[in-house]
């Protein structure tokens, strides 16, 4: 499953994932955003892995925030934007 979201005033967030046993699996977040340090991408993917398939945007964004160290810096990207891209992937809405 594949979802994309262009954050207003920000960059493109792309999510590719599977659903197994009603949970998110093989989550890959990608895009042309900026993230420091770069290892934070792994933490974001890990935070989304295993989330329930019916989790809402707010819940997904909270899971991402929770999984990130305090010194992570995002530019053109937010936890909310990633959560929207995840929901679009799950809802089959790539428009």
């Amino acid at each position: 499953m594949h979802g994309e979201y262009k954050m207003p005033g920000g960059k493109l967030v792309v999510v590719d994932l599977q659903v197994r046993d009603d949970r998110l699996a093989d989550v890959q977040v990608s895009g042309d955003f900026f993230l420091e340090p770069d290892s934070a991408l792994v933490a974001i993917n890990r935070a989304l892995e295993g989330q329930p398939w019916n989790a809402g945007e707010t819940e997904l964004a909270a899971a991402i925030e929770h999984g990130l160290a305090h010194d992570v810096m995002m530019y053109g990207l937010s936890a909310q934007a990633i959560a929207i891209a995840v929901r679009r992937a799950l809802d089959g809405d790539t428009a």
Binding site: V14, D16, Q28, V29, S30, G31, D32, F33, L35, D38, L41
Partner: peptide, 9 residues
């Protein structure tokens, strides 16, 4: 490509 871009995408 950028650090966080998907190669295949």
């Amino acid at each position: 490509i950028g650090r966080f871009q998907s190669l295949r995408n």
